[in-house]
Amino acid sequence: MAKAASSPIRQRSRSSDRSARAQVDAGTRAALIQNQGDRRDMLCSGLALAVKIGLISLGAVSLVRLSMAYQERLDRHGELAAVVDVETNKLHGLQQRFDRLFTLGGRDRLMGEQDQWIAPNRLRVIWR
């Protein structure tokens, strides 16, 4: 026996079911695509935030290290300035002594400074 052809009402209902399913599938796909886009946006935002936090922390650490190095340099400069002051004072004292020795009467002053010399006709006594 030959099968009877489907009724036109049944064919319409099948096609309407397909279109309804297609609309539901299209809505579901759109929601999935939107959800994937949101996830991608969140991932990109999280990566950008991590990079920014990393750069800020790197800058802060560098700034702290630079400030410590600058403080150390200031300390060294203070030490060197103190040494320079001491040596400058020594230099001024030696310049004054040199000037006193090479002016009039400088020979007598030099002989007066040399107290370890023994005067003529004297005997040196060394105590042990």
Rank of each mutant, 00 (worst) to 15 (best):
A48E: 04
A48Q: 07
A48T: 10
A48F: 01
A48I: 11
L49M: 11
L49W: 02
L49R: 06
A50K: 10
A50E: 12
A50V: 13
V51D: 03
V51F: 06
V51R: 11
K52F: 05
I53F: 02
I53N: 08
I53A: 12
I53D: 06
G54S: 11
G54A: 07
G54T: 08
L55W: 00
I56Y: 08
S57F: 11
S57H: 13
L58S: 06
L58H: 03
L58F: 06
L58A: 09
G59F: 04
A60Y: 05
A60T: 09
A60C: 10
A60M: 04
V61A: 11
S62Q: 01
L63S: 04
V64S: 06
V64A: 03
V64G: 01
R65P: 05
R65F: 12
L66R: 02
L66V: 15
L66K: 02
L66E: 13
S67H: 04
S67D: 01
S67Y: 10
S67A: 07
M68P: 07
M68F: 13
M68A: 07
A69R: 12
A69T: 13
A69Y: 08
Y70R: 07
Q71T: 09
R73E: 12
L74T: 05
L74M: 15
D75I: 14
R76W: 04
R76C: 12
R76G: 11
R76V: 06
G78T: 07
G78E: 06
G78Q: 11
E79M: 05
E79A: 04
E79Q: 02
E79N: 07
A82Y: 05
A82W: 05
V83Q: 02
V83Y: 01
V83W: 01
V83S: 03
V84M: 08
V84F: 09
V84A: 14
D85W: 05
D85F: 01
D85G: 03
V86Y: 09
E87Q: 15
T88G: 08
T88Q: 06
T88H: 04
N89G: 04
N89L: 09
N89D: 10
L91A: 08
L91V: 13
L91D: 03
H92K: 08
